[in-house]
Design a protein around this nucleic acid. Structure first.
Lengths: 140, 140
DNA sequence: TATTGTTATACTCTATAACTATA
DNA sequence: TATAGTTATAGAGTATAACAATA
């Protein structure tokens, strides 16, 4: 399928299409761990924010509480995340289990290989610039 | 929620997070037209490939035939796409209707505004470089 | 009152499998 | 036999609304 000139200049469109490449490759590599790219992101956020609540996790993932609930259930069933007592008795404090820490390290290694593969056409400088621009867009 | 250092260097993760910004903004702007960002992409592909089959569309969108069917149904119900006779009697030839052409032009204008908003923190040079790198990644 | 977690329910998107008609 | 479209069905992922416990 052809893409006309106008399409070339639509950044969001090009972005979404490139995202498919990352997602498809990441999904394939993460499958053996039993998690999707989105749940991999959840594990990363929990690791960097030990003791966080489900609501906070949902906020960071741009999903609502009930969806955050399902994600947490799944990761707990896999033995990667534990629900612990919080100071606030209403809330759960989420943490990675030792098994979750170990599995996440392996997932990160796999995902780094995905990055390398998808960005194989970029030079080291281009890759660094690409990452810099991504951060700049996100921090706006 | 905090993001640790390691997360900063995961390109695919940063990419997916930035993609959320585009998607959320595009979804909001496209809602009035009755289409999602994915279906907007379908319209663009049909416009640039008049007479294409549903299977080819599905291929380009990375979904299978039955999903391409639903997308086509939806766009036809909106009056944006027509199924016409193909040389191959098994296949449909997809085309934008005049109404679809007109609506798509308006959608593109809306999506360009999304691009501008999401990339507001980048200079003109940075934006051009960003787009160049996206194309390079996609063409690999 | 407001918030956290929870549950039930529904909607969207997608995939699989089987069928039909053409090639 | 292979392919395009179609249909039915099932599985994720997500949203909404309501409820209980706690703040």
């Amino acid at each position: 399928m052809k893409e006309g000139q106008e399409l070339d200049s639509l950044v969001g469109y090009q972005f979404q299409r490139a995202n498919l490449l990352f997602m498809a490759a990441a999904e394939e590599r993460l499958r053996e761990f039993g998690v999707s790219p989105a749940r991999f992101s959840a594990l990363l956020l929990i690791r960097d924010n030990p003791g966080c609540t489900q609501s906070a996790l949902g906020n960071a993932l741009a999903v609502n509480r009930s969806s955050a609930m399902k994600i947490t259930n799944h990761l707990q069933e896999l033995g990667f995340v534990s629900r612990e007592q919080s100071e606030d008795a209403r809330a759960n404090a989420l943490r990675l289990t030792p098994m979750g820490e170990k599995a996440l390290s392996q997932m990160i290694a796999a995902v780094r290989e995905v990055d390398t593969a998808v960005l194989s056409s970029l030079s080291a400088d281009e890759r660094a610039e690409f990452l810099r621009l991504l951060h700049k867009v996100r921090s706006a």
